[in-house]
Design a protein around this nucleic acid. Sequence first.
RNA 1: GGUUGAGUAGCUCAGCUGGAUAGAGCAACAGCCUUCUAAGCUGUGGGUCAAGGGUUCGAAUCCCUUCUCAAUCACCA
Length: 595
Amino acid sequence: MAIEEEILQATLAASQKLYGQAPDVKALQLSATRKEFEGDLTLVVFPLLKLSHKKPEETAEDLGKELVANVEAVSGYNVIKGFLNLCISKSNWIDTVNSIAADPHFGIVEATADSPLYMVEYSSPNTNKPLHLGHVRNNLLGHSVCQILKANGIKVVKTNIVNDRGIHICKSMLAWKLFGNGETPESTGKKGDHLVGDYYVRFDKEYRAQVKDLVAKGMAEDDAKKEAPLMKEAQQMLEKWEAGDPEVRALWEKMNNWVYEGFDKTYKRLGISFDKIYYESQTYLDGKAKVNEGLEKGVFYRRPDGSVWADLAKDGLDEKLLLRADGTSVYMTQDIGTAQQRFRDYNIDKMIYVVGNEQNYHFQVLSILLDRLGFEWGKDLVHFSYGMVELPEGKMKSREGTVVDADDLMDEMIRTAKETSGDKLKDYSAEEVDNIARICGLGALKYFILKVDPRKNMMFNPKESIDFNGNTGPFIQYTYARIRSVIRKAADAGLQVPARLEAKYELSERETQLVQNLASFPQAVKQAGKDYSPAFIANYCYDLAKAYNQFYHDFSILKEENADAQQFRLLLSSLIANTIKTGMELLGIEVPERM
RNA sequence: GGUUGAGUAGCUCAGCUGGAUAGAGCAACAGCCUUCUAAGCUGUGGGUCAAGGGUUCGAAUCCCUUCUCAAUCACCA
């Protein structure tokens, strides 16, 4: 039994004995003692006053005596106001270290045959432009949440729904057809997604010029936007696409494939992957079918113009369009179709959508609609709603070119990492140096994004860029590399990391705190899983690394003369390195052996 | 206007289900490398936790009101 649990149980028993009744365990609060006070664990006694009918100090004294008498590991206590500070025997912490060392999957719960299956949808790009920083946040959060769920013993299917059809796709296709002169990724040397994105921007530029022109000729702006020849042509292209026009379909496939090649490179570099990819071009028809089914069952209704709607009044919402009068589908229709296919393909216990908070309303509606259509998990679907990445000038906008491009940003981070390393790596091959720069640059980027509470909007200032010092990914990576270095040097000196500790070493305050910090990793994983919060893991890793660096500064390992102390520190260091590595893996961040 | 979320140091952010004197990093200043990796460590300054009320032994945290910002409320996705 963990020491915390043992103390809580003993406290309940003590309360029963002394006061005739015990409180609910959940009312008890036991936490690490703040460093300005003596002791290791602190019990807050205020919740027990109602039972004891005594002053806080007296109650704490009562309980302190009982705990010392009944819990072997509790070696002493002191009372400050309503806080009972407990001193835990040194040998208990050695036992803790040994049990961590004996567990090859420390902090990780393995899935079993009975484990639930969660499907997590993330990334979900449009195939008309390259990925930007906003997408990066989505991808990193999605990937990390999957890792964290797996670490909590849940089976996970990582999925991506590619928005590969629609008017926006036709815009870049049309612009390429009109102005592209047959350009290809090969002929221009551009990544396919960037090439296509350029034509999406080009469309918007030409289109705006046409609108301006029409307005100058006296047309109202709203009409001009509808009447501009480019817009009409794009719409015609969409109709042809839906009708299966061979020429349009061929162009669509060609350009989408360029984009996919580009995306693949970006995903690979980011370390993102999927178990199953869905395409809206293959799910929207199912959506239509499902909506028609709902129509027959009376779940939805048809208006005189032929459009199909859902009435959400009894859920406190408005009416929602599901099929246009011309029979074409909208976003919601496609999401219903996608859900249908997923439900058919997998035995999903829970569906999690990693999608920005701008779509909160959409998912509120989707949940209700899926429920009405008979999907058991519909009303329990989770919209993992994350905040926007903002620039100092405000929101990023693709068409206005105010986006931070994902590929450019990664290049820049890696380049900066290389500069930062200076000549520290001059003994390594160019390949090794590049790999370390890659690990650190991406680590800085990923940590920067993941350390922030997902629900909140976050700020990215390109001018200040992303730091490599302080509370950053490289700081944590550095701590790992540092420990690995010590362990290599130890091996050179003939010192191995022990598998377990036999001696009764008297650890210092700082070492005790480090052990406690390390031992709380499983709780951090659990909490992160419960809250779907990579930020919780990020902050845990930082705290652990910070605490280790303080220890490292004040204590020697290789030069330590006391063999018990040395053995203890080697094992503790090694376990901390392993835990940092595991924690960073949950964030999708690699750690280097040296840097 | 309705709904939802946010507001903590000059800046970027922590602060878990209410607990001790609200914490980090960056920026500024002052120190620490012939000694296990200085991407590190130590110290100084910096706060009306948006404002006001309430709940209680105790509130940045829970409740109410107000203010500010964001998203959303489309036959866009």
